[in-house]
C-alpha cells in the first residue's frame, strides 16, 4: 500500500530471526521470572563469552533492569527473554529478583520514596 512512501526498514519488516529460534524453541524458562523481575549482571561472565542474543541481554543488565525492559530493548517477546535470562541465571552471569508477591502496597516508606522521586521531576 504505502510501501513506496515508507520503504520497509528493518524494524518494520520484523526480526530476521524468528523469536523462538533465539530460545532454541524453548518456551519455559528455568527460573521463575515475571515482567517486573529485576535482573543484574554479576560480573562473572563477559558478554564476549556468550552467544549474540545472550550477550546483548547481558549488556543490558549492567544496572538493575526489569524483564519487561530487556524484552522491549531487544524487541523480543517477554517469553523468549525469560528463557534467555534464565539461561544467564543458570550460568551465574546475572542474578534475578522476582517482585515480592506479598508486597505491602501501603508501605509508607516506599510511598514516600515514590512521592519524593516524582516531585523531583516537576
Amino acid at each position: 500500500m504505502s510501501s513506496f512512501e515508507h520503504p520497509l526498514l528493518d524494524d518494520d519488516a520484523g526480526p530476521l530471526v524468528r523469536p523462538y529460534t533465539v530460545s532454541n524453541g524453548r518456551t519455559a524458562p528455568t527460573a521463575k521470572l515475571d515482567l517486573l523481575s529485576l535482573v543484574r549482571s554479576t560480573g562473572q561472565l563477559r558478554p564476549s563469552q556468550l552467544e549474540a542474543e545472550h550477550a546483548e541481554a547481558l549488556l543490558l543488565c549492567r544496572e538493575p533492569i526489569s524483564v519487561a525492559e530487556v524484552s522491549a530493548h531487544l524487541r523480543l517477546p517477554a517469553m523468549v527473554i525469560k528463557v534467555l535470562l534464565s539461561d544467564l541465571v543458570d550460568v551465574g552471569a546475572i542474578i534475578a529478583q522476582a517482585p515480592d508477591p506479598a508486597v505491602d502496597t501501603t508501605d509508607q516508606t516506599v510511598l514516600e520514596a515514590l512521592l519524593n522521586g516524582l516531585q523531583r521531576r516537576l
Binding site: L36, L38, T42, G43, L59, R62, S66
Partner: peptide
Amino acid sequence: AYNGDSDHSPAQQSRMPTPIKL
C-alpha cells in the same frame, strides 16, 4: 568498559532496587 572481574561484593548483589508498579 565492561569489568569482567567479579567486583560486586555479595552485599551489593543482594541490594536490588524495589520496583513500584502503578
